[in-house]
Simulated assay, not measured.
Amino acid sequence: MRITRPTKLAACLVTALTLLTIGLPSSAAPQPVSNSTNVRYDGSRFVLGDAPAAIGSTEIRQRSGLAELTPVRFAAPTSAVVANYSTGTPDGSSAEVDVRAWVNDRWSEWTPATAGTPTALPGASDQVQLRIIVSAPPTGAQPWVADATVLPTDKVAPSGMSIQAAPLKSRVFATREGLVGGTTANGHVIVNRDHFVALPSRRGLASNGSGNYSVKVCTASRCAFEPVWDVGPWNTKDDYWNPSATREMWKDLPQGKPEAQAAYQDGYNGGKDQFGRTVANPAGIDLADGTFWDALALTNNAWVDATYLWTGDGGRGTVSITSGYLNIRNAASSTGAIVGMAGKSAQVTVECQTTGQSVTGSQGTSNVWLRVHPGMYVAKAWISAGTFGAC
């Protein structure tokens, strides 16, 4: 078993700064958790639970668990933090801790935080959150994380990561995920005609039921807005939407180009993914059945334009429905033709607002419609959002 402990640097920082502890002493109640999937607390540690290996889009059979800890607020904004924690990783298992920050009124994406080592944030923030990820082979090992704490520091160079003026858009090959009845990387159980997408890195993985990491996926005539609820295809550490210098792996590839695409088209990495499998298609995004068949009306795998909404600023709203999807129309009326769909909890871009048919929804009764793409509208009665300029 490999066990890591906090470093001397961490110990010095603890004595120099006010320690901001995510959890409670081991003799007290479990550490505060805001969201958890297949992770249990045994009184002192977060341990991988007993759920069987999930069916995932990457086809890598592993047991995995995820726990988002309650956000911590500092007395003043900081540009970097130090996370301290211990891990146990027996028999080929793994355990990691990620951090994100509240920047520009939204959460930044998750960044791996090495124990005792300063981690730069994408912007100054007085609120951060830790996430624990534990994974293991289908049987046996139970990796764990204990003593998770986080504190501010200025002992680090800028990360190179930032929130752009406009979110990144790239043209990628989309495949259909399917796998109805399986479990995604965030613990969502896939249902028939489901609405979500998978991207090949946990950095942009939303928690189950959340859409704070969402994508806009468009063909020539239709668009879908969907939350990122799974990891894949092919890779699990290919955050290709980030600048090359800050990618987890494949730092020599251009921003916006998935490793699987480079492997398939150019023979990059010997034509293999990070697990050594021969890449059989250039896929950079997986689409759940409802997104694939219904929202985008695809009949086969296809090239699409994907926009990674959390990577940039701009008007946003959140789909406020209890299940299923919201139709996107070609006019500000429920009689307009359906030209796309937005899944539960997904964020949508908002270009402007106009008046149209009065609709009653989760946000009350309103005749305001939001333009989410040229020629595409959703009723504001179903969108949690502020007020926007007129179209």
Rank of each mutant, 00 (worst) to 15 (best):
M1Q: 07
M1F: 11
A11N: 10
T15K: 05
A16M: 13
T21F: 04
I22R: 02
Q31T: 12
V39Y: 00
G43P: 00
G43R: 00
R45A: 15
L48Y: 02
G56R: 15
E59P: 04
Q62W: 06
Q62E: 15
P71C: 10
V72Q: 11
R73F: 04
R73I: 14
A76W: 05
T78R: 11
A80K: 13
V82Q: 09
V82N: 09
V82A: 06
S86W: 02
P90V: 02
D91Y: 07
R100K: 14
A101D: 05
N104E: 14
D105C: 07
D105P: 05
A113K: 08
T117W: 07
R131G: 01
S135R: 04
G140H: 07
A141C: 13
A141M: 09
P143Q: 01
D147G: 03
K155T: 07
V156I: 12
A157M: 12
M161F: 08
P167Q: 03
L168C: 02
E177Y: 04
A185G: 12
A185W: 11
V189M: 11
V189P: 02
V191P: 02
R193Q: 14
L199S: 01
P200V: 05
V215D: 05
S221E: 12
F225R: 03
V228S: 00
W229H: 13
D230F: 04
D230A: 08
G232P: 04
Y240Q: 00
W241P: 01
N242R: 14
W250F: 15
D252G: 12
P254C: 09
E259K: 05
A262M: 01
A263E: 12
Q265G: 07
D266F: 11
G267V: 09
G270W: 07
D273F: 02
V279R: 00
G284Y: 00
L287M: 04
A295P: 10
N300W: 04
A302E: 14
D305M: 06
T307G: 13
Y308A: 14
W310Q: 13
W310C: 04
G312W: 09
G314V: 03
G314P: 07
G317P: 06
V319N: 04
S320W: 04
L326K: 09
I328D: 00
N330S: 15
T335R: 14
T355E: 10
S362Q: 10
S362H: 09
S362M: 12
V368N: 14
L370T: 00
Y377Q: 03
K380V: 01
F388L: 10
